[in-house]
Design a binder for these strands. Structure first.
Lengths: 148, 148
DNA sequence: CTATCTGTAACGATCATAGTTACGGCCGGT
DNA sequence: ACCGGCCGTAACTATGATCGTTACAGATAG
């Protein structure tokens, strides 16, 4: 299964979205976010670093620094997040190259390639239908203070 | 990404399908199949064991024993194989439970659950459109002796 | 200048995967 | 009845991914 980085990334962007709705200026620090996710600030910086390279967030060092969304929440789809955090293909081929002496071994990978792409694409297309704004809306249907 | 068991499982069922097309009686041994996949016979038995529990193949011990398909190749979808070999969910939630003190941490998992299910379902539905017969047909478009 | 952030390297703990050895059980052929 | 060849499965190991952690350099507001 897919690692938890994707889940954490969506969590973090949702946190930024909710925080911005309350105060568009105030940044969120790695430490604050880490408490919400129950992890280490370095893990947060690593994942938000991927988001930054994908243009989804921006960061500022120094005091009063921290993280901001860099796009409207309704313009960040879950597919964008997935692509930013996951560079591997969804399905793994054989670890060892199959036997070239067997017609099945020789051709199976090429045969599967297309089917795997279709399935992966269908999954991503479904993720593309939902945005961080949707997640934030669902999360904030129940009220509560924003605390770490 | 998904482990290679799924790929190997499809490979093995395709091998059984092609072998049966040449001789409906002759079983395929774990050792023969292992050579096609470039792995160990025990790995083959483990994966085909899952297929047997899912009713996709049958096995027979003793000399003249080995593995047979237990369904028509066009009645085994890639989704069937996926479900037989993969019991985990596609997306992983947080390792540590997120903070209950934060409205995002408190609600994010429930919010994501539905979206993740949709995406996983879309992927499986696409896999469900293809069968072992399709893969076997593609593999055998190029001829060749069936060798390990 | 200092305090407080980010950025990133480096290391370790934990876990999943899959390769390997070993051996018990089943069964066809002699 | 036995032997040989197959499956079934436990047990151990090697490898690699993941993620938590420490450490420290760089940036910047006050």
């Amino acid at each position: 299964m897919i690692n938890s980085r994707f889940t954490v990334a969506v969590h973090l962007l949702t946190l930024l979205s909710v925080a911005r709705a309350r105060d568009p200026e105030a940044p969120v620090t790695s430490e604050f976010a880490a408490e919400s996710v129950s992890t280490n600030p370095v893990v947060v910086r690593r994942i938000l670093g991927s988001m930054r390279r994908a243009g989804l967030v921006r960061s500022q060092p120094g005091p009063t620094g921290g993280w901001h969304l860099h796009r409207e929440p309704d313009e960040i789809s879950l597919r964008d997040v997935y692509r930013a955090v996951e560079d591997e293909r969804l399905f793994s081929m054989h670890r060892q190259q199959p036997s070239a002496d067997c017609p099945v071994g020789r051709n199976i990978q090429q045969a599967l390639e297309g089917y795997f792409q279709e399935a992966e694409h269908a999954m991503e297309a479904k993720l593309g239908e939902r945005t961080i704004a949707d997640v934030a809306a669902e999360v904030t249907r129940y009220s509560g203070r924003l605390a770490g």
